[in-house]
Design a protein around this nucleic acid. Structure first.
Length: 198
DNA sequence: CCACGGATTGGCT
DNA sequence: GCCAATCCGTGGA
């Protein structure tokens, strides 16, 4: 049970994306802890990737992506949703990993409240708790308030776990974007029921 | 089961 | 003024 060190995050975004699979995302909330195993991610690289928010250069919205590995970049989209990214690499690189899905571990009752405003869930609702980038943020109560927070903080951090075997990692094109659609920068754990889409 | 479209705000052209 | 790294409800097969 050890926090990932800063040196984990300051590496190449594709490496960090793959290695984030299987790690445990932890969020202190209401004097308790929410946690989940990361099962699906996407890499965004502002140097070559038109779909990365950082591609256009630094703005007020995306500046956290330029502030170096080990930060949480949270953005607001579609007028109602938040999505969370792990910033990677060096200062001014503009790279980040979108967390697309986790498998709930601790604090499932709180996540259920945050998502569905009730404790008792149907089987379908249980699978729907955190299987998408905005669903994950809603369950974990992540909003613009958490934008820029350090992943070495005691509020939000990621716990180390064994690497996922490469044979268990599926690689595909990213989901829901309109630019750079052919880059194969989505990674997810094979056959995991909390992955957002096949 | 799948496809489609509306919701709803803020960032950037 | 356009439109987004999404989600959910609806309607049809």
């Amino acid at each position: 049970m050890q926090k990932l060190p800063i040196s984990f995050y300051t590496r190449n975004v594709q490496i960090v994306a793959k290695e984030l699979l299987g790690k445990i995302f932890v969020r202190k909330y209401s004097s308790r802890f929410l946690s989940g195993r990361i099962v699906e991610v996407e890499a965004y690289d502002g140097s070559v990737d038109e779909s990365a928010h950082s591609f256009i250069g630094k703005t007020k919205r995306n500046e956290v992506m330029f502030n170096g590995g080990g930060l949480l970049y949270v953005y607001f989209t579609y007028g109602m949703h938040f999505c969370a990214n792990v910033v990677t690499g060096k200062v001014n690189e503009g790279c980040a990993v979108l967390i697309r899905a986790v498998e709930p571990i601790d604090g499932i009752d709180l996540m259920s409240q945050n998502r569905f405003h009730k404790i008792s869930l149907s089987e379908k609702e249980k699978l729907n708790l955190t299987n998408g980038p905005a669903k994950f943020c809603q369950a974990f109560a992540i909003t613009k308030e958490q934008n820029g927070i350090s992943l070495l903080s005691d509020e939000i951090f990621i716990i180390n776990a064994n690497k996922i075997n490469p044979s268990e990692i599926v690689n595909s094109k990213r989901i829901g974007i309109k630019k750079s659609v052919d880059l194969p920068w989505r990674y997810f754990i094979k056959d995991n029921p909390f992955v957002s889409k096949k």
